[in-house]
Amino acid sequence: LGPLEPAPGEHKLQYNYCLWFAKKGCHRTSITQVKATEQEYGKSLHIVGRCASVEQWWSLYCHLIKPTALKPYRELHLFKSGIKPMWEDPGNAKGGKWVIKLRKNKIDRAWETVCMAMLGEQFLVGPEICGVVLCTRFPEDLLSVWNRTATDQASTARIRDTLRRILNLPPNTPMEYKPHCDSLKKS
């Protein structure tokens, strides 16, 4: 992919982003052949579009169907350019993710809100954010925010608190932090 620039008059984003789509579920099926599974998962990821400005983001977003219109076990990944949305990518390998389960009636708005917070640098954790992921399931969907360094407690706490605030989550909403190395060991 060639370089991407904001057009004249557009509002540049702090980072360029890539939107990916995958048909697989959040959990991988193969237990024994990690490498084969990694390749298989990589192949299931398709780039939908890219954006370097707010206007390019909306132009992309307005062409997408809403998360509630997606079938179960579909994934949307909005990641910084240069980071592939896989645990094994060097940008993610030492990182982890906050995962929130959301009812279908909340997911459209929540996905839009989390994407906007990332694009607008609302998490205030410098370069720590890698991307956000939506996994459609049944009856609830999963929304996750991936960061670079699972051991960076200040950043992970700030991401959690920002998520609670922007999504207006009740204080008792379960939120789980999963380091990717644990996910890799399990698979």
Partner: peptide, 21 residues
Amino acid sequence: GTRIIYDRAFLMNLKNSPLSR
């Protein structure tokens, strides 16, 4: 360097700008 920060209201305002279509 300076970070480019946009809040929700600002981003929503640009959703309907002619450049966003």
